[in-house]
């Protein structure tokens, strides 16, 4: 029998949007930091905060990231979201969160 693409046993796969979101949460889960520091943690090395400031906007709206003065922090909801999604994709592990 040819498996249907709607087969519920097919492994879930993240889209690019989610990958980038999870990477931001993962980088912040290591501890609060400024946008410039986050830029470095993510490997962008743009030397400025602008890209990251814009990128975390939707995550702040979703309640996964909080802005505190100059710093960005991963909220508990954000950590939970990260944990759940990584588990879904089979990536949960001691080195993750």
């Amino acid at each position: 029998m040819i498996p249907s693409k709607h087969d519920r046993h097919e492994k879930p796969r993240p889209g690019r949007a989610e990958i980038e979101t999870l990477c931001i949460l993962h980088a912040l889960a290591a501890g609060a930091c400024t946008a410039v520091e986050l830029d470095a943690r993510l490997g962008l090395r743009s030397g400025r905060s602008r890209h990251v400031d814009e990128a975390v906007g939707p995550l702040v709206t979703a309640g996964w990231v909080a802005r505190e003065h100059d710093a960005l922090r991963c909220t508990e909801a954000g950590r939970e979201h990260l944990r759940a999604r990584l588990l879904r994709y089979g990536l949960a592990g001691p080195d993750v969160v």
């Binding site: 492994k11 796969r13 993240p14 889209g15 690019r16 949007a17 989610e18 990958i19 980038e20 979101t21 999870l22 990477c23 931001i24 993962h26 980088a27 943690r41 993510l42 490997g43 962008l44 890209h51 990251v52 814009e54 990128a55 975390v56 906007g57 939707p58 995550l59 990584l86 994709y89 990536l91 080195d95 993750v96």
Partner: peptide
């Protein structure tokens, strides 16, 4: 730079839609 990134990209669904924030 991000330890989970490579593994996630390896299973990426290229057809998924959404706004990639970065």
């Amino acid at each position: 730079s991000v330890s989970i990134a490579s593994a996630l990209y390896a299973i990426e669904d290229a057809k998924s839609v959404g706004v990639a924030p970065l």
